[in-house]
Amino acid sequence: MANQKVEFPSTQWFQALAARMNEQRAKYQNFGFVTARAVFRVTATAAGNRNFGLVFDGFECLEVRELTDGEIAQFDPDWTMEGDYATWKEMVQNIKAHGEADPDHTLNRLCLLGHPFRVHGEDQTRVDVFYRQLFSFQAFIDESAAVETSFA
């Protein structure tokens, strides 16, 4: 698994992050539990916009599935983090290169001004879950350092 390349963006890629999270319970216990339904949205890929719905509970990511635009509302996310493919790719490559996001590629930094990433949702008090559990989400995305990623 570790040596097989996984394409970004794909369900398998997020599942690979989830698998790494789920096998490192102690690490995630250190941050505190997560209770969130999140959508990671990658826009402007060769195949158009791609959405991945993830369900976090306790110290695990329980579910990863790709969603069409029309399925997002039904998935009922607390928050959606959205950015274009080029920025996602740059972030993933940066994480790979440094073992974790460098100061210019943290989720907070990328989302700060609403571009190149944007965190949004229907209800601001649910969007705030992103900030409440930020250490866990950053660590989750940083897991990509250990995933051999290929880019479509």
Partner: peptide, 16 residues
């Protein structure tokens, strides 16, 4: 980042 998490939680309490 810890301040971010803490304050977001306090805001969540206030809103609820």
């Amino acid at each position: 980042t810890q301040v971010v998490q803490d304050c977001a939680r306090h805001v969540a309490f206030g809103c609820r």
